[in-house]
Amino acid sequence: MPADDHARALLDPAVLARLGALPLAARRAMQGSVSGRHASPHRGASVEFAEYRKYVPGDDLRRLDWRAYGRTDRHYVKEYEADTNLRCLVVLDASGSMGFGSGPLTKFAYAQRLAAAAACLAIRQGDAAGATCVADGLEATVPPRRNPAHLTAIANLLAGVRPRGAGRLVPALHELAETTPQRALFVVVSDFFVDPRELRGCFEHFRFRRHDLAAFHLLDPLELTFPLHRPVRFLDMEGGPALLADPAEIADRYLASLQRYLESVRQAALETEIDYQRVSLATDYEQTLQRFLLGRVRSGGVR
């Protein structure tokens, strides 16, 4: 399939049309460059009153509240909330393990569609959207732009990457959290097969930098249930050593280990207050996004 066709295949118009009614809301105040629909930490020129502030020399006299001066004989400046846009950065994990999939879609293909749809939704509502693919490092990055034509660049980027090698997701996330100068919405789509303690460090880093982090944790049903019986030679998709094992022998311990890991990740997400979405590939990505968007609408914006 040509690259452009492949990129277009990531964006299903019907899905986007159905999701278009739901806004992509931020859970934190964003610092955008233009006016938008998200709350900003700064005062602005919206119609929503924010607070009174004492006049200091240099303030625009047009914003002086004369009525308050009449009542209190003091000079106050009337401030209003500012609405701004957000910058949404979609982070796609392109490590080798993302290439696994027992159904019609691999985790990576699922992640591509999810990431492309999220970027599309952001741009449609006037936000800036960008994308970053992470494999051994920062594989490729498209900076956030508000231009609708920029969606093509994002789709091309997502479509042009293939999962390979050992993932370096944790350093890449630290790097993104640190180098992104203003508050932004990060949508990370990954299987997060890393040490939960390191992952927790990443989440805390994003929180410290006041970014809004949404993490989509993709898992294949085969990985979750491990319904294998005959001896299998497992090849590590990230280049590690192969393992010959009888699934019947190790299934219980595998599942127990997986459950411990999932619980640790969930606990880290709760404690760092990130928007954590555990996703099975058996669930359609449209439903996943719908649940994600609805959850954000309910939580509302924060100033």
Partner: peptide, 14 residues
């Protein structure tokens, strides 16, 4: 049978 597997860390631990 041979199977490419992503969640190797849990297999190795098990």
């Amino acid at each position: 049978q041979t199977l490419a597997w992503g969640a190797m860390q849990f297999l190795l631990e098990a």
